[in-house]
Write a protein that binds this DNA or RNA. Sequence first.
DNA 1: TCGTTCTTTCAGGAAATAATGAAAGAAAGG
DNA 2: CCTTTCTTTCATTATTTCCTGAAAGAACGA
Lengths: 181, 181
Amino acid sequence: MTASKATLAAAESARLSAARDEFITQWGAMGSAWGINRTMAQIHALLLITDRALSTDEIMDDLKISRGNANMNLRDLVGWGLIRSVIRKGERKEYFEAEKDVWKVFCTIVRERKRREIRPAINVLKDCIDRTDDLTSPEAAAFTRQAEALCEFMEMADGVLSKVVRSQESSIVPWALKFLK
Amino acid sequence: MTASKATLAAAESARLSAARDEFITQWGAMGSAWGINRTMAQIHALLLITDRALSTDEIMDDLKISRGNANMNLRDLVGWGLIRSVIRKGERKEYFEAEKDVWKVFCTIVRERKRREIRPAINVLKDCIDRTDDLTSPEAAAFTRQAEALCEFMEMADGVLSKVVRSQESSIVPWALKFLK
DNA sequence: TCGTTCTTTCAGGAAATAATGAAAGAAAGG
DNA sequence: CCTTTCTTTCATTATTTCCTGAAAGAACGA
């Protein structure tokens, strides 16, 4: 029954590929919805579900993308801290593997988005407030009040996220989560 | 000193405009970073910092955008529940005003993104898991394990966010926040 | 019913964003 | 050094996304 065994294995492998492709495609789409470029999200997805490090060429093959595209997005992912490069001794090629721990992945993304987007936004708000808080017209007052409310909210959110992200060390977050989940 | 009073008022008004423009521009940029189209974010910003309802034409003028663009994004914002239309009696024109309470705005955005993006993503993950959890190869196992971890995490996050968003009624969230902020 | 005012739609065009591939650049071994 | 192998860059091209403006559609009052 070697033949039927092989057939079975092929069918299983096809099902796995299909599910992996689905996952990668959808993860890419989700990336776009959150302002992350599709390819970067797809590479991340691929590495997330592969239990070994992959070379640039393997990634290019799998996702059918060009070398330049692969290289650029791999660099970005390394910059985000979501993947790391692995050098195997005796080989010149660079391999990449993703952090697999979902909680760590989450914390990394939060930390980066805080740094890249939330902090700068808070600074813009503060700047706007500085430039208008001595104005006396009602419209100016309305503007300043709203900017202050937003600013306070974002600082609060930033603080909460900092705590969450630092929670490996503390035990507060898991504990607070018990009441929230 | 009427002239210098007028000059002063003009200068103040210019400063206000500049700050408002800065705010709108940056809010738009921030929108893009989070996968929301720039114009939609800008209209939202404009309505957030204006303490009266604006007509489509006023918005077009202020942001220098076309009628079609304004109309489409206003509809989307209404769909998100971030703004509402106001009909003044005796007038045929439609006016729009934004929800100003920052916490409510946050809850609305969270609720919508949960519904539009998080829930569907969870469903995709479940589907992938269903399609592979009987496969026996090591790669299949690795895939399924990782998908399950992601799925569990997202369900947890979804649950936490639901609690947070429903917190107007409960007092758990403000209380939990005390420990997180 | 008609004219007016306002809203919606959508095909086509414009702008922004991302991808390609070829060439240049490193790194390492011989 | 020189060759080979791999990586990076970047001008060009492609794709996606967004916007415009004109035309069609409603709503309403007269």
